[in-house]
Amino acid sequence: MDCVSEVLSGEATHQPRWFGSLGAPQALQERLAERAQDVPAVKAETDVAIETRDLHVYYGKNHALKGINITFYKNEITALIGPSGCGKSTYLRSLNRMNDTIPTAKTTGHILLNGEDLNRPDIDVWALRKRVGMVFQRPNPFNKSIYENIAFAPRFHGIKKKSTLDDVVEEALRRAALWDEVKDRLHESAFALSGGQQQRLCIARALAIEPDVLLLDEPAAALDPISTAKIEELLLDLKKRYTVIIVTHNMQQAARISDRTAFFYEGELIEYNPTHKLFTNPDKQATEDYVSGRFG
C-alpha cells in the first residue's frame, strides 16, 4: 500500500484511509452494510465447499504457513489479504496442490473438498486440479489459438468430439463474458488479445473443465482499471455457480466483491470473518491496523 508517507506524517484517523482514494467511499460503505445481512458468521455444514484443517507449508526450512483453518462456503467469494510474503498465495496454491511442483515444498494437514482429503499422498492430483481451477496473477494464455487455449484441457480430460468441444468452448467463453469479443476470431493467436481479454480467457479456460472451486491469484494485479472492473463484475457473476477464492493486494477490491475475508500475516491466519465485519469492526487490532493502512 502507498500509505507509508501518511503513516510517517502521523496523521491518524479512524476512517480507513483507502476509503478516501476510492472516490465514492459512501457507496462502498453502503455496499458493505447492505451485504451484512447476507453473510452470516457461520453457515450450515452442507454449504461448505472446501476447508483446510491445520494446514502447514514448508519451503525447505522456511515455515511458510502455520496451521491454517479456514472454511469456504459455496457460492461465495472469499478474499485472502495480507502484506507481501504473508503466505496468502502459498495458501491458495496449496488448495489445488500446485505447491507440489516446487521441489522443496512440503505440505501437512488436511484440505477437505466435499469431505475428501485432497492432501493425501495417494490422491490423483490431475483429477483434483480439474475440480479446483486456478487463474494466475499475470495472464498466461497458451501460445495457441483462442479456441485451442480452451479446448486443450477438456480434450485431455476425454472430450474428443469436435461438436462437443465447440460447445464447451462457447459456453466457457460466454461464462467469462468474452464470447462476443472473440467469436469471430477463435482461431487467431491468444496473444493478440489485450491483457484484460487474456485474463478473461484464462478464466474461461479454467471454467471449461467444470471446476467446483475457482482459485484466483491476484487476477487483476497486472490490468488497467477498466479491465479490473470487468473481471470483478465477472467474479460476482461467477459466484452464482462456483465457489470463488481470490488473493488480492487491493483492499478496495476485497471490500467490493468478497463475502468473506481472511487476513494473513507472517504465515498465520490472523482473522477470518465476513467482509463487512472484517473491514468495519474487526476482532483483532492487527487487522484494523492493516485494513486502515497503518502497515503493510
Binding site: M98, W126, A127, R129, G133, N140
Partner: peptide, 8 residues
C-alpha cells in the same frame, strides 16, 4: 503452471 493447474 497454467497447464498443470488445468489438471493436465
Amino acid at each position: 503452471e497454467a497447464s498443470l493447474a488445468l489438471g493436465v
